[in-house]
C-alpha cells in the first residue's frame, strides 16, 4: 500500500517536473529544431519536425562569416579568464593563507567594485578607448572583460583556497619544505579543482557579457554577442539563419554550463550560498 502510494507520487512529480522543464527549455529546443529547417519551412507555422537541412548553417558561414565572431568570442573569453587568473591567484592565495586584519575589508571593497553600473562609466570608458585607439580591438575588450570579472574570480578562488586545511601546510613545514616547495608540491595540487571551476564559470560569464562587447566593438573584434545583436534589424527571411547562428553561439557554453552547476551557485553568490 505505502509502496503503491509512493510510486504514484513519484509518477505525479515526474510528470509535473518534465512539463515544467520542457516549457522552460522550449525556446532553446525550438531554436535548435528551426535551425534545421529551410527558411520557407521556418515560417510555415508550428512544427517540431524539421526537414533536416543544414543550409542555414552553411549560409551563416558563407554570407555572414560566422567563424570570425566565433573566434573573437573564444579569444576574448579565454584570454580575459587567463589574465584574470594570473592577477588573482596570488591575491586570493595570500588572502586565504596569510590573512591580515584588513583582508576582509579588502575583499568587501573588491566586491563593491562589481556593483558599479556599467552605464555609469560608459562615457569615460568610451572616450578613453577612443583616444587610445582601443575601440573595436581585441586587446581593449580582453582587458575590459578581465576587469569586470576580476572581483568574482578573486572571491571564488578565495572561497576555494580557504577550504584547504592549514594543517597540511604545517605538516609540510615540519618536513622541511620551503615556501616555494609548499606552494608547488602541497598547495597547487589541492588548488587545481578550485582554479578549474573558477575558470569554467568565468569563461561562461565573459562569453555572455553583452554590454561592453556590443558597445565597444563594430566589426574586427566583435564577438558573438555583437554578431547576434546585428540580427535585430532583419532583411528578408532569416528565421532559420537566426536559429542556426543562435544554436552555434550557445551550444559550447550550454555544455560547459551543464558541467558547472555547483560552481555557478558558489561563484555568483560570492560564497554566500554553497
Amino acid at each position: 500500500m505505502a509502496r503503491a502510494v509512493s510510486t504514484r507520487r513519484t509518477a505525479a512529480f515526474t510528470i509535473a517536473a518534465w512539463i515544467v522543464a520542457l516549457i522552460i527549455f522550449f525556446p532553446i529546443l525550438y531554436t535548435i529544431i528551426t535551425s534545421f529547417k529551410s527558411e520557407t519551412e521556418a515560417i510555415q507555422g508550428f512544427s517540431l519536425i524539421p526537414s533536416g537541412t543544414v543550409e542555414s548553417y552553411v549560409e551563416v558561414q558563407t554570407q555572414k562569416d560566422y567563424f570570425k565572431p566565433f573566434m573573437n568570442s573564444v579569444i576574448l573569453s579565454v584570454g580575459s579568464t587567463l589574465l584574470a587568473l594570473l592577477i588573482s591567484v596570488p591575491a586570493a592565495w595570500s588572502m586565504a593563507f596569510s590573512p591580515t586584519k584588513k583582508t576582509k575589508d579588502v575583499l568587501m571593497w573588491m566586491l563593491s567594485t562589481k556593483m558599479m553600473p556599467a552605464v555609469a562609466v560608459l562615457v569615460p570608458i568610451y572616450l578613453i578607448f577612443r583616444d587610445f585607439g582601443l575601440l573595436d580591438s581585441r586587446l581593449g575588450l580582453t582587458f575590459m572583460l578581465t576587469m569586470i570579472n576580476l572581483p568574482i574570480v578573486i572571491w571564488m578562488l578565495y572561497t576555494y583556497f580557504r577550504e584547504i586545511p592549514g594543517e597540511i601546510l604545517e605538516a609540510a613545514r615540519m618536513d622541511g619544505a620551503s615556501l616555494w616547495g609548499e606552494i608547488i608540491y602541497v598547495l597547487t595540487p589541492m588548488a587545481v579543482p578550485g582554479i578549474a571551476s573558477t575558470m569554467l564559470l568565468n569563461i561562461i560569464l565573459a562569453w555572455n557579457e553583452a554590454f561592453w562587447t556590443i558597445r565597444l566593438t563594430t566589426t574586427n573584434a566583435a564577438p558573438l554577442t555583437a554578431f547576434i545583436a546585428s540580427f535585430s534589424s532583419p532583411q528578408g527571411l532569416f528565421w532559420a539563419k537566426l536559429s542556426a547562428a543562435s544554436t552555434l553561439a550557445i551550444a559550447p557554453i550550454l555544455i560547459m554550463g551543464w558541467f558547472s552547476q555547483k560552481q555557478l551557485v558558489r561563484g555568483l553568490t560570492f560564497g554566500a550560498v554553497k
Binding site: W18, A21, P27, A210, A249
Partner: peptide, 24 residues
C-alpha cells in the same frame, strides 16, 4: 530535468531576446 531548467541561464542575452522576439 535539472539540465533543461538551468539552460536558459547560459543563453547570451542577445540570443535570448531575439529568439523570444522572433520565434515565440
Amino acid at each position: 530535468v535539472r539540465i533543461m531548467i538551468i539552460s536558459p541561464f547560459f543563453v547570451m542575452p542577445p540570443v535570448a531576446a531575439l529568439v523570444w522576439k522572433n520565434m515565440i
